[in-house]
């Protein structure tokens, strides 16, 4: 039985009252396996940050269950057990109003069991973080680097990074990826990355979850998802327009393009058996999969609205 670093079950979080109520998270069932690098993807108000805040005990779930490293992060004393083992970089990078050096020195005293001075120095050097700039004079990129250094040097069992690439130039971004792979994912450590940067996720993640409107659209090992999705173009008469494995269909006079989300080979075989001709079969990048899924969800919502 695989252990999960983070697991939620029908998690719901609502804000506001009555007719103006917002369901930021709406029945979320998330499963982040321990030891993985998990990419949490989604559009801007999909509910990623709200979910992460609930995992850190910053927000209280309206209903449903959430467990981090096997414990409930919402109330003390389990909350403290969770926080001892988690490193966190928040979305707005307003972590503490201290210069990077002071932040590192302060944070160090909270994690005596796992903190690594060498790792702290390594991150500072690789990301070229200016240690003594006062907080108000830090650029957004440097604020991000400062928060990253403090969290990574904790060397904790779970690292939660909410939009860690904001303000980072390509060099810093590259160095961050290298650090994450080299130091933060060894020995069964888990990394949860919430981001829009699909290219980076495609490189370093081994599991992904795509969220939209407070719910998971699809979740699982990245390789499996990439091989399950395929773009198939057929010609022929009486081609099916719907099916369990079809995500979307586009057709013109000459050909019909199917986006498959499951078992593309089986589908292709079945259609060729029924007389259709396969013209083209191409894989889809994560970006394309993401766009297709979000578009389909949107049009489904429009239809039902």
């Amino acid at each position: 039985m695989t252990a999960f670093a983070i697991q939620t079950h029908s998690l719901v979080k609502t804000y506001g009252l009555g007719s103006k109520q917002i369901r930021a998270v709406d029945g979320l069932s998330l499963n982040v396996p321990e030891g993985s690098i998990y990419g949490l993807l989604g559009r801007n108000s999909a509910g990623k940050t709200t979910t992460i805040r609930m995992a850190m005990g910053l927000a209280r779930p309206s209903s449903g269950e959430i467990k981090v490293l096997g414990f409930n992060p919402t109330d003390d004393p389990e909350r403290v057990i969770v926080l001892r083992q988690v490193g966190y970089v928040p979305e707005d990078k307003m972590l503490a109003s201290l210069s990077p050096r002071k932040l590192l020195e302060l944070n160090r005293s909270f994690y005596p069991a796992t903190w690594s001075d060498d790792l702290a120095r390594k991150v500072v050097k690789r990301l070229e973080l200016p240690l003594d700039t006062p907080y108000l004079k830090l650029s957004l990129g440097n604020k991000t680097k400062s928060a990253l250094a403090a969290a990574i040097a904790q060397h904790s069992r779970l690292l939660i990074l909410d939009e860690p690439t904001i303000g980072l130039d390509p060099v810093a971004l590259d160095e961050l990826l290298r650090l994450l792979v080299e130091d933060c994912s060894a020995d069964g450590r888990t990394i949860l990355l919430s981001t829009h940067q699909l290219a980076e996720i495609e490189q370093i993640a081994d599991h992904i979850g795509i969220m939209d409107h407070g719910r998971i659209l699809i979740e699982g090992p990245l390789d499996d998802i990439l091989s399950n999705f395929r773009r198939l173009t057929f010609t022929g008469a009486s081609l099916p327009l719907t099916g369990p494995s079809i995500l979307s269909v586009k057709s013109d006079a000459r050909a019909t393009q199917f986006i498959l989300q499951r078992d593309p080979e089986g589908f292709a075989q079945e259609l060729t058996r029924n007389g259709a001709t396969l013209i083209d079969s191409s894989p889809m990048s994560l970006n394309e999969i993401f766009l297709e899924l979000c578009r389909t969800t949107e049009s489904k919502e429009e239809v039902s609205a």
């Binding site: 590259d174 290298r178 792979v181 994912s185 490189q203």
Partner: peptide
């Protein structure tokens, strides 16, 4: 494996 993954910035499992 880990060195290669770090150099390429990709997942070690891959």
């Amino acid at each position: 494996t880990r060195r290669t993954a770090a150099d390429l910035r990709i997942n070690p499992n891959t």
